[in-house]
């Protein structure tokens, strides 16, 4: 594995404060978070339920502006969302009035790519995620796992450098979740991108990540990080896996 130590995403001192409507108090969500993500790395951001990790991801995506700090993508500051960063959402966020292939091609439609080319690219990614045959289905007709596969295909299809995934498997049942984790790893091996994956599931983090960054509870900051050196494909019950799991488990804050 060639070490691409090129820094894709550089977050420096990100802080985020919210005004909660109806309350005079301010909500401090992020407290001076600094993070670097390297090219084609599968980075997992692990944290308990309320740790601002989604907010951090949204800042990187450009959907929210940090109150303080800077974010550089490819050494250039970001000015909002862009096609260089694709996003996969926990609640899928598929457009119900569009078919699977239309959903997958969405990013290309926005960019004005001609129809024939769009459909070809979309088809490629539909095949990649294993949804061949469901091109003309509507999201309402699909299971949770299938919907998320559409979400992943859609993010990939607009050809971003960076994939941001916000607890994408959080809404799935346990069995589907394991299956999807395995599939995602396979998809990513086939078409490598820089990935920022947010989760609160320790097993998932160790299974998927090259590197796991652990966030504290609110106000969120980076507590520690672990490089995962277990060879792929990983087994959830391998002794190394379990040791690491115990270690990380002690590092994470418990939030009730």
């Amino acid at each position: 594995m060639s070490e691409d130590r090129e820094v894709k995403i550089a977050c420096k001192g990100i802080s985020k404060t919210f005004h909660v409507p109806g309350q005079k108090k301010l909500l401090h969500v992020l407290n001076s978070v600094s993070l670097e993500v390297y090219k084609n790395e599968f980075l997992v951001i692990l944290g308990p339920g309320q740790s601002g990790k989604t907010v951090l991801l949204n800042c990187i995506a450009g959907l929210i502006e940090p109150t303080q700090g800077s974010i550089l993508i490819n050494n250039k500051p970001i000015t909002g969302p862009g096609p260089d960063r694709g996003m996969v959402f926990q609640r899928y966020a598929l457009f119900p009035w569009k078919t699977v292939v239309q959903n997958v091609a969405f990013g290309l439609t926005i960019r004005g790519v001609p129809l024939k080319e769009r459909m070809e690219v979309a088809q490629h990614y539909i095949d990649l995620v294993g949804l061949n045959g469901f091109e003309k289905s509507y999201p309402a007709e699909l299971s949770g796992g299938m919907k998320q596969r559409v979400g992943i295909a859609r993010a990939y299809a607009s050809d971003p450098d960076i994939l941001l995934m916000d607890e994408p498997f959080g809404a799935l049942d346990a069995q589907t979740r394991y299956a999807m984790e395995k599939e995602l790893r396979l998809i990513w091996e086939k078409e490598k991108r820089t990935v920022c994956f947010v989760t609160n599931n320790i097993e998932e983090a160790i299974y998927l990540g090259d590197r796991v960054v652990i966030m504290s509870a609110l106000p969120g900051r980076i507590k520690t990080e672990h490089n995962i050196t277990i060879p792929v494909p990983r087994a959830y019950t391998h002794p190394d896996f379990l040791t690491l799991r115990k270690q990380i488990s002690e590092d994470t804050d418990l939030v009730l």
Binding site: F18, H19, V20, P21, L63, I64, E65, T67
Partner: peptide
């Protein structure tokens, strides 16, 4: 309609 609920000069 975005997720943003904060504005420094909200009021």
């Amino acid at each position: 309609l975005s997720l943003e609920i904060e504005k420094a000069n909200y009021f």
